[in-house]
């Protein structure tokens, strides 16, 4: 036991669904030593006023993110495909319900 380090636990990211049927949204993070503790800490920290109907906790180091410094061009492929947007199309005058 003495070789166990005194830490505050690992970082977990918390995602909450505020109403049934809505998407889960990132709410913040918590420290915990295992998944049970993570979900209990997240409940106590983020849903004290009935904010939650569903909850995910994910170890922060399991999240893969785009690096904003080196991947500025990452989202570029979408830029030249304006025909993916409905406003690209010319419709005859008087078209309704479209």
């Amino acid at each position: 036991m003495s070789e166990v380090k005194d830490t505050q636990g690992q970082l977990w990211e918390v995602f909450i669904q505020t109403k049934k049927g809505l998407p889960f949204k990132h709410f913040g993070s918590v420290h915990a030593f295992d998944k049970e503790m993570a979900i209990q800490n997240a409940r106590d920290l983020y849903t004290r006023r009935g904010e939650g109907k569903g909850m995910w906790v994910v170890p922060a180091d399991a999240i893969v993110a785009v690096d904003p410094n080196n991947d500025a061009s990452f989202f570029e492929p979408a830029d030249d495909k304006i025909y993916r947007h409905p406003t690209f199309y010319e419709l005859p005058d008087g078209t309704k319900n479209m």
Partner: peptide
């Protein structure tokens, strides 16, 4: 904190 860490490690 140490007990929690040891428990998590064991499991």
């Amino acid at each position: 904190r140490k007990a929690a860490a040891a428990y998590a490690q064991k499991h």
